[in-house]
Amino acid sequence: MRFKAELWVRLKVADLVAQTAWMTLTEKLDFSSDLHGIVRYSYWGFDAEGESAEKVIEDLDRVVRLDSSFTNQNKHLYLLRVTGDTPGADSITAGDLPLDRDYPVHDTVENVEAGNKRFACDLLVREHRNDRAEGFVSRLESRLKGTKVSGMKVGEVWRLIVNASGDEDAVRKAENMAVTRSRREGVLLNPHYQTSELVGISVPEE
């Protein structure tokens, strides 16, 4: 059976890159009242084939836990999960990253406009070229037992916790923060070799 699965990995220690992104967006660009926090994850999406969702996660887990090009337990937290419409997908996971509680707030700004609230937009940034992903597929091929992986997406997810009036407003703001169109716009990706896609939007509990 075919499944879609994802691996999210983040540093246990302070992420200096995310800190720099935070400082650039809030101090050098004018997003100080729109942005509450940033988290950065390494992201792998898998098109997998295996006998069951549980087995796919178990097989992938064995590899990603031991292969330092995915995770190193001394410095990373990770979450491996099945996505899509697989029944009971929510409970088929591995790893120690509390993704659904990972909403740090760095600022001290109150919501500026009435009715606004916090949205966490997860933007996947990756290169137009897909050869890193192809490399990982062949890497997995030689290490996986049972489960097969036929395609992958590899990149970084930026979780931008923004202050917005609704979903659309949140996504628009997140994209403005992300895409470098000019010197005064965006920092997280250069569209001439990178793309972004929204892979999740959620509302953190206040």
Partner: peptide
């Protein structure tokens, strides 16, 4: 084979 970094790392 050792130091040529394999794609995917």
């Amino acid at each position: 084979g050792i130091f040529g970094i394999e794609k995917g790392e």
